[in-house]
Design a protein around this nucleic acid. Sequence first.
DNA 1: CGAGTTTGACCAGCGC
DNA 2: GCGCTGGTCAAACTCG
Length: 224
Amino acid sequence: MGSNNGSSICLDLSIGTLQFSNSCMKQHNKINKLPLIHGSTKMEEQEIYSSQIEAEMLDEMNRVVAENRRLSKMLAAISERHRALRAQVLEMINSTSSSSSTKPAPKRRNCDGSLGYPQSVNASYKVNCAKEEVRETRPRISRMYIRSDGLVVRDGYHWRKYGQKVIRDNPYPRAYFRCSFAPVCPVKKKVQRCTEDHSVLVVTYEGEHNHVQPLPGDSLNCLR
DNA sequence: CGAGTTTGACCAGCGC
DNA sequence: GCGCTGGTCAAACTCG
Ligand SMILES: [Zn+2]
């Protein structure tokens, strides 16, 4: 979870071009090897038809090659931007962690301030979570998006509800759960409905279980 | 009767 | 300092 630190994006963008050109060439050879029988109108028709197909295939192939080239350029540009942003974020983390060594870190609202789809996660959240990875002292926080009608999340663990709160800008309340193995297990979770899509539950897990899953059969229909 | 849930009160951080 | 807000506590309540 969140451990995908790979800076290089590797995508195979050769969308069947080789295969396509090979089959095209085979067909081309086949057509060329056809015995020529002069005066045969049927053969002429076939030849015209074949050449039409050939021309269409070549057109298609050129189009796909051009598309492939365009996508490769786009990917290169995106990779370059990703690398630059990553470097920037790391620089920010280093500067803030060195400067905040004198200041005590705030006790609350570290990673839970914003709630929304993964695409709309803001920059400060990303920076905070990156900080989370850098210093291993704070409990691990992970967020999941689950499509569910009720507030029940089948994640294989037993939870005890210890609070519910109406949160600003959300008509649905947020529920607070502790692992039923507490205080031995320190894991907590928060469950609330997504403001954008009310059929989606936003589940935030805090910490890691130090015991086996009591209900391993329960699968998590996660949307990530 | 014990375990789990509900819900109002309380506490602490943060912005103004 | 004050009000707002999110997180937690704990008494009351429910359910098997
Ligand atoms: Zn646990």
